[in-house]
Amino acid sequence: MNVLIKLEIARTLRNKKFVFFSVVYPSVLFLLIAGPQDNSVVTGTGLPMGAFYMVAMASFGALTAVLMGNSEKIAKEREKGWVRQLRLTTLPGRGYVLAKVAAAAVVTLPSILVVFVVASISKGVRLDAWQWLALTGVIWAGSLCFAALGVAIGYLVSGDAVRPVTMITYFGLSVLGGLWLPVTSYPRWLQDIAEWLPTHAYAGLGQAIELGGAPHLKDVCILVAYFLVFAGGAARLYRRDTLKA
């Protein structure tokens, strides 16, 4: 299993297009969205513009790495027969999934840190040392929820359909969850929906830390609940795919 994890990490890092969209793209978006605006407080959050979008884009970058990477790779490898070949070895099924998550996690951490550096330099975001460490930890750990979703999508759809399905899910969750725009700018009915989305809870973890407190219990529970649903779905779809092989 360790060999496969190293192989997956090496393959991920060699994919320049994937690394760009996972690591560089979120920072570029931060500069495009937050850069031209003043650092006034975002309505309803208590956070200045720079701090708000720093967490939003760091979360967006982590989401990109684990969701886009896992779903497309798994769907295409199923189609090419690579997953079937691995089942003929002694590698347990969980080992294959773990290797995918580990490879995505390696890219997730740089994507978070690069956004932090860019926000600190361009918008003057300043936090205590414990806040930087806590932010990195919760955004990195929270990405596991979307890693599980990526695995589920990879086993749910074919190689031809995986990209459009993933993109719709990816942009839908990002926009509706408030990673690109504050949900306070949405109509009331849309705000009510956004509050129960995993991306909104995900960003909420970091925003609470920036305000000097602990993540809200509601956000933690929502994210854990979605993780259990996504992981359970991924496990069921994996078993179904095994029976078909």
Rank of each mutant, 00 (worst) to 15 (best):
V24Q: 09
I121M: 10
K76M: 03
F60Q: 08
L190R: 10
G50R: 04
L149T: 06
V162Y: 10
L4C: 11
A225T: 15
R94E: 15
T43I: 11
T64C: 09
L91F: 06
A119W: 11
A65W: 05
R87Q: 10
L135D: 02
I74P: 01
E77S: 12
Y226H: 12
L217R: 09
T90C: 13
L173K: 03
Y186S: 07
V55L: 12
T169D: 01
P187V: 12
L205I: 04
M167F: 04
G124E: 00
I9L: 08
L197E: 06
L156V: 13
A208L: 01
A104D: 15
A161E: 06
G206I: 02
V165P: 01
G159V: 04
L243G: 10
E72V: 15
R87V: 03
W140M: 07
V118T: 07
S40V: 07
K218L: 10
G154R: 02
F20V: 15
T136Y: 05
M54P: 02
G142C: 14
L86V: 14
I153L: 15
R94Y: 15
A75V: 11
I209P: 05
W196S: 04
I5P: 00
E210I: 03
V220T: 09
P215F: 04
F18Y: 14
M167D: 14
S120K: 11
Q37K: 15
V55W: 01
I222V: 15
G233N: 09
M68E: 10
I33S: 11
F146G: 01
E77M: 08
F230Y: 07
M68R: 04
V118C: 02
V101F: 03
V157H: 05
E79L: 07
A129S: 12
K76C: 00
R94T: 14
I74L: 15
I5F: 10
I193E: 01
A235Y: 02
F227C: 08
F116G: 02
W196K: 08
K6I: 03
S27D: 00
G35C: 13
T169M: 09
S111A: 11
W140Y: 15
A141W: 09
D219H: 14
D241P: 06
K73R: 14
S27V: 01
G232S: 07
T89G: 05
D160K: 15
F146A: 03
L63A: 02
T199E: 07
T184L: 07
S120I: 05
V24F: 13
V107R: 04
Y238H: 12
G233V: 14
D192Q: 13
I209S: 06
R84F: 08
G206A: 00
V114G: 01
F171D: 15
P164S: 10
L98C: 11
S22L: 08
G212I: 02
F230K: 05
A134Y: 02
G206C: 04
I5D: 00
A225C: 14
T242M: 09
F171S: 14
L217G: 09
N15A: 07
V115Q: 00
K100G: 08
T89F: 11
K73S: 09
F30Q: 01
I5G: 01
P164A: 06
L176K: 08
I112W: 07
G154V: 02
F171C: 15
K123W: 03
A231C: 02
L149A: 08
W132S: 05
